[in-house]
Computed example of a mutant assay.
Amino acid sequence: MDNTNWMVNQTGGSDFILMGLFSQSKYPAMLCVVIFVVFLMAFFGNAVLILLICSDVRLHAPMYFFISQLSLMDIVYISITVPKMLMDQVMGVNKISAPECGIQMFLYLTLVGSEFFLLAAMAYDRYVAICHPLRYPVLVNHRVCLFLASGCWFLGSVDGFMLTPVTMTFPFCRSREIQHFFCEVPAVLKLSCSDTSLYEILMYLCCVLMLLIPVTIISSSYSFILLTIHRMNSAEGQKKAFATCSSHMTVVTLFFGAAIYTYMLPSSYHTPEKDMMVSVFYTILTPVLNPLIYSFRNKDVMGALKKMLSVGSVFQETIK
Rank of each mutant, 00 (worst) to 15 (best):
Y222E: 03
V144Y: 08
L209C: 12
S175L: 07
F66G: 00
G102D: 11
F296Y: 08
I103E: 10
P186V: 10
Q104V: 01
C145R: 08
M302C: 10
Y77S: 04
F296G: 06
S267I: 07
K274Q: 02
R174I: 03
C183W: 09
S246N: 08
T228A: 15
S157E: 01
Y27V: 12
P137E: 10
T244M: 10
A129F: 14
L226Q: 03
V76N: 03
V185I: 12
C152G: 08
Y136T: 04
S197C: 13
L212S: 14
L205T: 01
I218M: 01
Y282I: 02
G151I: 02
F116A: 02
F281V: 00
L209G: 14
P186F: 10
V311E: 15
S220F: 06
L70T: 01
F106H: 14
R231C: 06
C101Y: 07
N290G: 00
A259W: 04
F43D: 04
P28V: 12
M302P: 00
F147K: 15
V188I: 13
I229F: 00
V311K: 15
A149D: 11
M302R: 14
P133Q: 13
S68H: 06
K26C: 04
L148V: 11
S194D: 15
V280A: 07
M276T: 03
A243F: 01
F224V: 02
Y64D: 07
T11W: 08
C245M: 07
E115N: 11
H270Y: 06
K299Q: 05
I218V: 03
V34R: 01
C183T: 02
N94M: 13
D159R: 06
C206D: 12
V93H: 13
L309I: 15
L51H: 15
D15C: 12
L254S: 05
M232H: 07
A129W: 12
I96G: 06
D2C: 06
Q316W: 09
V82E: 07
M30G: 04
L211Y: 09
Y199G: 01
T283Y: 01
I217W: 05
M73T: 08
V33W: 01
P287F: 05
L211G: 14
I213R: 10
G113I: 01
I75V: 11
T167E: 13
F16D: 05
K274H: 01
F161P: 05
L226C: 13
M264F: 04
V301C: 03
D74K: 00
S221M: 00
G13N: 15
R126T: 02
G92W: 09
L191I: 00
I217H: 01
K307G: 13
A98C: 10
V140E: 01
L40Y: 07
S71G: 09
K307Q: 15
A42S: 06
V38M: 14
G151C: 05
R126I: 03
L139M: 12
F255V: 06
M162V: 14
S246G: 04
R176C: 08
A129V: 09
F296D: 04
M162D: 14
T286R: 10
A121F: 08
C206W: 14
T110C: 05
L31K: 06
K299I: 05
F116R: 05
S79W: 13
I284Y: 00
F43A: 10
S150Q: 12
F117S: 04
